[in-house]
Each structure stands twice: as C-alpha cells, then as structure tokens.
Design a protein around this nucleic acid. Structure first.
Length: 582
RNA sequence: GCGCCCUUAGCUCAGCCGGAUAGAGCAACGGCCUUCUAAGCCGUAGGUCGAAGGUUCGAAUCCUUCAGGGUGCGCCA
C-alpha cells in the first residue's frame, strides 16, 4: 500500500511541476511512512515539508495544493493536514478487502514475480572441510539460505555456491594421518566419523613427531603437484567431510546440495591464468619476492599502499587468488548480475580489496554488483567468541541435538499423552526452528550473544510463537470441518483487530522486497512476529467459530486462512517448517 | 598509527537513506482458561538513545570531536 500511495504522490509531483508550483528540476524522494498513532491516519508523507522551500510556500499551504492535485483513487478515504505540514492518509477499508481477497485466491499471495529477473550468485556456508561444522558456520548457512530463498521466490535465477575450504596446508597433516592409520591396518572411514577427534589427533601427531610433520609438508607438495596417491586420500577425506556437511544441511533445512559445492580446489587450474591476467592488466608488482597488487585506496600501518598478495614467494597461492578466480568464473561462466557473499564481517577489508582488484582487472563487468553481506560474531555469555565449557568451539550437530532435546521436554510437558513419534517430530521441528529463528531475527551485522536459554525459551519473539499461531489456525479449521476453498462471502473488516490484521497481511510484499534488496532476514522475522501478534489479538477478541453471524464467521475464517498461509510462506522463506499441531 | 563496526529499559535486541509522545521480548508486578490449543491475551512499571558540539522547522537516526568496547591491517583462510 505504501507503493501505491507513492505512485499517486509521484503523479502529484509531476502535475505540480507542470503547473509551475514547484520547480521542474526538483527531485524529491517521495517518502511514505506508516503512522504510529491512529489519529494520524494509516500513512503519512512529509512531502510538503520537503518541498516547501523549493516551492517558496509554507508547508501547510503546499500540503493543501498536493492534496488538491492528488489523483482520484480508491486507496484512501480521507486526507488531512496535520502538525507542521504532514499529510495524513486514511486507508479505505474496501481497498484492503480487495487486496485480501486477491491474495486469498492467489498461490503467490498476491505477490507478482519480479519484472526483471537477475542471475544472482550466492556464496554462503562455505565451511572448512578439514574440520567439522561448528557454531561459526551457522550464521552464514542460514542467513544466506534465507536470503537465497527469498530472492528465488521473487523470481530471480539463483546459483548457490558452497565455496568450501578443501585446499591448503592443513590437508597435508590430515593426509599424513590417514596414511599412518592405513599402515596400521585401521579402517579410515570409522576414524573419520568424528572429524573433530580426527583433526585433533592429526594435529597432535604433527606437533609431537618431526618425521610426521615432514611427511605432512611433503604431502602438501605432492597433493598440489597432482600425485595420484595423494589425491586419492584427499578425495576420500573430502567425501566423508562433505557428507557430514550435507547431513547438517538436511537436518537444518538449508537448501544446499552436493551440486552446489564448488570448493577452492575447483579453481586450482585457473590460478595461473588469474596471475597472467593481472600481469597483462599491468596491476602486478613484485615485492619482497611475492607478486602483489597494490591499491592506493587502502593503506597499511605505515601509510603505504596496501598490497594484496596474489602469489607467495614460494609460488603458492592465497585465498585472495582463489576468490579472484571465483569472481572471474561467476562472471564468465555463471553470468552473474549480482554476487552476494555471506561471510563474517571481519573479512570486510579482504572483500573490499578483492572486489577492487577484480574490477580493475576486468574480471567482472561494471554493471555486476559484488556485495559482501557481512554478519557479526556469535558471542558466548561471557561476551567473548562462543566456546563450550571445555574451551573448544561447539559442534553444530551437538548444538542442534541439545535444542531438540530441550524442545522435546517442553512438548512432552504440554502434551503428556501424545504418541512418542509425534512428540519427537514436533520437538525436532521446534528445536531447529528455534535455533534458526534466534539467529535470523537479529540484525545480521551486529555481534550477538548466544544463549541457550534465550534461544530455546519458546516464549515471546521466538519461532515457537510463530508456529503456535499457525497451529491455532490449523486447529480452527479442523474444528470447523471446512476447507479453505469452500469459504464464501466477502471479507468484512468491522472490528479494529480485523482491520489491523488485514492491514498487516497486505504488507507482506513490501517486506519481501526489502529482504531481497538488503539481505536482512530479520526484517521478515519482525514482520512475521508482528503478524502473529496481531493474529493472536484478533484470535482473542474475535471469536471465529462462534461469530455472531455466518457471514462474519466466513470472513474471519478467511482472515485466519490468509494469516496461516502468509506465516507458512514467510517461514518457508526463512527455511523454517511449520506444524499442524504442537 | 590507520580502516571498518558497535554503545538505545536491569538483561537480550528492534528502530538508523531525519519526522509527530523512542519500541519488542525476557525478568518484575497485576488481571484473564465451564467458550476456537494459556507455547497465549490484556494491563502496570522501567530509557539524560555513550558524551559534547553542529546542520535542520524537526536528530536515536546526518556531520565533527571525544570516551569506552570490538575487529582487521604482507606471504593462514
């Protein structure tokens, strides 16, 4: 509804320009805000105050002219001038009814597919295969996934890229340890079942034995030079580690698959070409034996231009090189219009640098948008980066199990007589949803405090609150013994709570647009929480099955139904499943 | 030293391309289950928006300075 009003005001501005009331070169950003106070109507604009100076009129006088020139529309019933020159708009309930009815009969809830779809490459999750996924991977995986799903729903073409860390020096250590186990006749697969343990054991051998360490370093060289034995071990290791990741994705409801994996190693063959291209472009300089690109935009400690090291003096490559190769690939092969990186905020400088290099080298077209979507660190309750009591980083799988167990206890206490299987299913969904929602509902860019108790409190602004609202609708329909498709009559917005609910329902598309543009899933969380809240109030204040008239009952069932579908769709964009019962 | 980010209620967080009395949740206190699931609803209380200047009709929001915290800055990723 904001958008519609904005369009009306744009027309008004054009008309006022024609009449010479405001200068033709004025380019006001037409801003429409939702009001906080009902006495100010539903929507307001400050347009008159913005333009008053340019028009040489006092704001209230100009406001009147704006109102006089506003095109006819069924959107609003009343327009007022208030305070210093605000224009307040009162929404026409009949217009709301139309919107609600239209959304009800549309599988996409009234949200049109986007007119100009883009190819959007999303780089997210990207764990290091040397270790098991831990809490640190949670944010990238689920925030990236939520934004990906939202963009996909809008109608864009999404290419997921799981840029896993499957290359680098630490693999020498791991391969050496695999060799050692093999020599002892041990089953490697079972040893790899717990990657954390495996990694620590390999590290220990590396630290305690010089011979082992030497072997590890040699294996890195052999691996990079394409030695078949080495590559065999390496593939075996990655296979196991990737299947661990996939288990976690499936459990978490992250939409990544094996087909989306394109790890660092996939760019090995491109690295020399990247160096050659940079050299060709005249960007490369040798410094202290390393090949670097110096960027005047960035300074180091001494105020000198900051280098991006492309190739080490020993000939090895660094992650900047791989990232550049990936950008080149994403432009040339994937034809990206937009590339999003859901990566820790601490890598901000790195991305600023490689984005700049990639542009200077022509790896990406000027029109292609490269966007680092940073997120903050997950902190423990002591305010330091999250660790377990033993000081190690918490395994993601253990975290999820803990969440599901806590949810199970709660579900059981609420439903003592429920069948075990059902309890388990509900608890699993609630547990996962809680963990995801706790993260998604916070502003991506800030660090946040990880707390089991808050994440799994199941009260207030949490996933269970939203799921609960959804099950209430499901329950009503079960009791009513009607199908949504059988509902008759038109929506009636008589009660204040009905109006509020309808008004919120109609705002769904605005939120999706914002999430898609900015990559902030918490905006959708906020919206869904407000929607569920308004529904809960409506549910208390407006009896559905015991409504006063049949027409009222039908209307309320429709409102409830659209609420449920909006919640389900919204949660689905967040990668969260709903339940019919809990 | 330089860059980026942060500082809002006791706690955890929204709000930040300026807008009308600063919002939630938790915790606290008081109501509401013979009526559609109380994982809920209704209400009370709680804030010099880190500090000081500035721009503006109007600043939590923009600019400057300062304080405190975080994070990053050449051969790890």
């Amino acid at each position: 509804m904001k958008v519609q009003l904005q369009q009306l005001l744009e027309q008004t501005v054009a008309s006022l320009k024609q009449q010479g009331i405001i200068p033709a070169d004025a380019q006001p950003r037409v801003q429409v805000d939702r009001t906080k106070d009902k006495s100010h109507g539903d929507l307001a604009t400050n347009l008159a105050m913005m333009l008053s100076k340019a028009a040489g009129k006092n704001p209230r006088e100009l406001a009147q002219l704006i109102i006089d020139n506003l095109p006819e529309s069924s959107l609003v019933t009343k327009v007022d001038i208030a305070g210093p020159g605000f224009i307040n708009f009162f929404l026409n309930p009949l217009w709301l009814v139309e919107q609600v009815e239209a959304a009800l009969i549309d599988p996409r809830l009234g949200i049109e597919p986007i007119a100009d779809p883009q190819t959007i490459v999303v780089d997210y999750s990207s764990p290091n295969l040397a270790k098991e996924m831990h809490v640190g991977h949670l944010r990238s995986s689920i925030i990236g996934d939520a934004v990906t799903r939202t963009l996909e729903f809008q109608g864009h073409k999404l290419v997921r890229q799981n840029h896993v860390g499957d290359w680098g020096t630490q693999f020498g250590m791991l391969l050496a340890y695999m060799e050692e186990l093999q020599a002892k006749g041990q089953e490697i697969n079972s040893n790899l079942s717990n990657l954390e343990v495996f990694y620590r054991a390999a590290k220990q051998r590396f630290d305690e034995s010089e011979a082992f360490a030497t072997r590890a370093r040699n294996l890195v060289v052999e691996l990079q030079s394409g030695d078949e034995h080495c590559n065999q071990l390496w593939r075996e290791f990655n296979e196991v580690s990737l299947s661990h990741c996939q288990e976690t994705y499936d459990r978490l409801g992250v939409s990544l698959t094996r087909a989306d994996v394109r790890g660092e190693s996939a760019y090995n063959d491109d690295l020399n070409q990247v160096v050659a291209d940079l050299d060709q472009a005249g960007l490369l300089k040798e410094d202290q034996g390393a090949k670097c690109v110096f960027l005047d935009e960035f300074k180091n400690k001494d105020g000198d231009p900051l280098p991006v090291i492309i190739q080490k003096k020993d000939g090895g490559f660094l992650y900047a090189t791989t990232d550049l190769a990936a950008m080149r690939y994403r432009q040339r092969e994937l034809n990206a219009d937009r590339v999003l990186y859901f990566v820790d905020a601490r890598q901000g400088l790195h991305f600023q640098q490689v984005f700049t290099v990639a542009r200077n080298a022509g790896f990406v077209k000027p029109a292609t948008s490269l966007e680092h979507m940073p997120f903050g660190t997950v902190m423990g309750e002591d305010g330091k980066p999250f660790k377990t009591r033993s000081g190690t980083v918490a395994k993601l799988a253990d975290l999820l199990t803990e969440a599901q167990n806590r949810a199970y206890d709660l579900v059981k206490s609420k439903n003592p007589d429920m069948a075990e299987q059902d309890l388990r299913n509900i608890a699993d969904v609630v547990g996962i949803a809680s963990v995801k929602y706790a993260d998604l509902s916070k502003n991506r860019t800030s660090d946040y405090m990880f707390s089991f108790d808050q994440m799994l409190s199941f009260e207030g602004n949490t996933a269970p609150y939203l799921l609960y609202a959804y099950t209430r609708v499901a329950s009503v329909f079960e009791k009513a013994e009607v199908n949504a498709s059988e509902l008759t009559g038109s929506v009636l917005l008589e009660h204040e709570k009905e109006l509020d609910l309808a008004s919120k329902l109609v705002q769904f598309n605005e939120v999706i647009t914002s999430v898609a543009r900015l990559g902030y899933p918490h905006l959708l969380c906020n919206y869904l929480y407000e929607l569920a809240g308004l529904f809960s109030s409506f549910y208390e204040a407006c009896p559905i099955l015991k409504a006063e008239t049949e027409a009222q009952k039908q209307s309320r069932l429709k409102l409830a139904w659209l609420t449920a579908r909006t919640l389900k769709q919204g949660l689905s964009l967040l990668g969260i499943n709903t339940l019919e019962r809990m």
